[in-house]
């Protein structure tokens, strides 16, 4: 008997089932199909300005910084300002995201390079798939558009988030992800990010910048 067969046999013996019972199979199929939602916190059930405000409040509570810009066209200038204020070189790494590519980077003094991070980049820009207001959490999806290494390796992670992509709860975010990728399908990596990297492993003292970014800066595009 293979390890797999024996494990399944023991599970079924312990549960007192054969594994072929139609009602059990139906229950499982039904749950996978319908994906019931459970208890959803009221706090995120907001619209418009109130929803955006909750996202900002929660992201800042998790020690991210947030700046709002009126249009995507203003994002590069806001990012250049942020780097200058942080005493960083005017250099960023980013992927092939078309929404980022359409922004007027040439109007700033920023030096932009493309691709994944090799661990040498101080600052990088990714575009978020969504922001979840209930906890100020960003949802980042992997791919050549927004490489996962840009979320994790730079000291300063900068994320552009569109207001229309801010949702109240995780379940609404998953519904949008299923629309984009198909039911049951996922990009290789989905990173939920809530604030910059931290550790409290030494004497339970909270310190920022453990292995991931020391700072997380969110550029929230209105409209």
């Amino acid at each position: 008997m293979t390890a797999r067969d024996e494990i399944f046999a023991t599970i079924r013996r312990s549960l007192g089932v054969k594994g072929t019972e139609a009602p059990r199979r139906h229950i499982v199929q039904e749950r996978l199909e319908s994906a019931p939602k459970g208890a959803i916190p009221q706090r995120g059930q907001l619209i418009g300005e109130a929803l955006i405000d909750l996202f900002k409040t929660q992201a800042e509570a998790a020690m991210a910084s947030v700046v709002e810009v009126d249009s995507a066209m203003d994002a590069p200038a806001a990012i250049a300002d942020y780097l200058r204020a942080s005493n960083l070189p005017a250099r960023i790494k980013m992927g092939d995201d078309l929404r980022l590519a359409a922004m007027p980077w040439g109007d700033t003094a920023l030096e932009v390079s493309k691709g994944r991070s090799d661990g040498q980049d101080l600052a990088a820009v990714n575009h978020a798939f969504a922001g979840v207001a209930e906890t100020g959490t960003l949802t980042m999806t992997s791919g050549p558009e927004n490489p996962s290494t840009l979320n994790l390796l730079p000291d300063y992670a900068i994320v552009v988030l569109q207001s229309k992509d801010v949702v109240g709860d995780y379940e609404t975010m998953w519904a949008r992800l299923r629309e984009a990728y198909g039911k049951g399908q996922m990009p290789r990596t989905v990173n939920w990010i809530t604030g910059p990297s931290r550790s409290a492993d030494i004497e339970q003292t909270l310190l920022l910048g453990a292995h991931g970014p020391r700072s997380l800066h969110i550029v929230l595009v209105k409209g």
């Binding site: 998790a62 906890t135 989905v190 939920w192 910059p196």
Partner: peptide
């Protein structure tokens, strides 16, 4: 914490 900093979902 309300949410940990990184929750990473890996598929294949």
């Amino acid at each position: 914490q309300e949410m940990s900093v990184y929750t990473t979902f890996s598929t294949g």
